[in-house]
Amino acid sequence: MRLVSRFAARMLISICLLVAVQTAHAGEKITIAAAADLKFALDEVVEIFSKAHPADRVETIYGSSGKFQAQIRQGAPFDLYFSADIAYPRALRAEGFAVFEAQPYAVGRIVLWSTSRDAGKLTLADLTNLSIRKIAIANPKHAPYGKRAEEALRATGVWDKVEAKLVYGENVAQAAQFVQTGNAQVGIIALSLALGPELAKQGSYALISDKLHQPLEQGFIITRRAAANPLAQAFARFIAGREARAVMTRYGFVLPGDVK
């Protein structure tokens, strides 16, 4: 009995401390909704940003660009929205949900990625090979990376031959996960994910020529609810700055103003 009450007392103290820490937080807070391809790159950018803003808090949520757009329309509590396709934030701006015009922040690239074979030598034409039974891509119906993957497969003329092998991830990160778990032999995923710390260890990739698909022009906005939030403004400036650009470049993004 004494043991139990002592345990309960300790739990209570920890909970009080936790609550105290949470509420004592005096700084600003922002929540960023970001496309799944930014998972590793934006995590690093936020880490550097947070070091310069120790009193403030930045929360990041990753998911599919289309879903976030719909959620912002319905009043979701996001302060910034980083989309994998600039068309989504542009539409939000046109409907009055954004503070300024959608800003391009990067151009994404797609790659062939595999954990079971040397993807470095793979080409899109190889996907017709019988030993490749399943190919994972993001859902072209609503995921920007899936749309570009479909365009590249069509431009290469292999779409009709590989369509029966395609499996569709809800977003590009799930497409990568299908390959990671060994359920698909090859995936067409974001270069920024293939270069992420975990995935780089597990697999290899081959860049797909960007002449085969429309550019993956990515854009962000500050939402209306964050119009007066100084931290949101600071982050918007930071993403265009030298440090953030260095991180984004390392993850394979082509940046606005850079010569390819």
Partner: peptide, 26 residues
Amino acid sequence: VLMIGGNIPDKTRVVSVQIYDHVEAM
């Protein structure tokens, strides 16, 4: 189904997933 289905027409794209896709595509 969303996690292991892979969203393949006639094989794994069931109604609940189809609804989700419609909503995602607005």
